[in-house]
Amino acid sequence: MPDLEITIGGRSFQVACQPGEEHFLRAAAAMLDSEAQPLVAQMGRLPEARMLLMSGLMLADKAAAIEDENRQLKAKLAEIEARPVPEREKLQVPVIPPQVVETLAELAARAEALADRLEEGKVS
Rank of each mutant, 00 (worst) to 15 (best):
P2M: 14
P2E: 06
D3I: 15
L4H: 11
I6D: 08
T7P: 01
I8N: 07
G9S: 08
G9Q: 02
G9C: 05
G10N: 03
G10A: 04
R11W: 09
R11E: 02
R11K: 08
F13R: 01
C17D: 00
Q18T: 09
G20D: 02
E21M: 03
H23A: 14
F24E: 00
F24R: 04
F24Q: 01
R26H: 10
R26G: 07
A28G: 00
A29R: 03
A30M: 05
M31Q: 07
L32R: 12
L32P: 00
A36H: 10
A36M: 08
A36R: 06
P38G: 13
P38A: 15
P38W: 13
L39E: 12
L39N: 07
Q42T: 03
M43L: 15
G44L: 13
G44A: 12
R45C: 07
L46I: 03
L46F: 01
P47Q: 08
A49G: 10
A49Y: 06
M54I: 14
S55D: 03
S55I: 05
L57D: 03
L57S: 07
L57T: 01
M58W: 03
M58D: 05
M58I: 11
L59C: 05
A60W: 05
A63D: 08
A63L: 14
A63R: 06
A64L: 11
A65D: 02
I66C: 14
I66E: 14
E67N: 07
E67D: 09
D68C: 14
N70M: 15
K74N: 02
L77G: 10
A78R: 02
A78Y: 00
E79T: 08
I80F: 15
E81H: 07
V85K: 12
V85F: 12
V85W: 05
P86G: 02
E87F: 15
R88V: 13
R88I: 11
R88N: 01
K90F: 13
L91P: 03
Q92E: 09
P94W: 06
V95Q: 12
I96E: 04
P97E: 07
P97S: 12
L104D: 01
A105F: 04
A105Q: 02
E106I: 15
L107Q: 11
A108G: 02
R110S: 10
R110D: 05
A111G: 01
A111I: 02
E112V: 11
D116H: 10
R117A: 15
L118N: 07
E119M: 12
E119Y: 11
G121V: 10
G121T: 09
G121H: 06
K122V: 13
K122A: 15
V123T: 10
S124K: 06
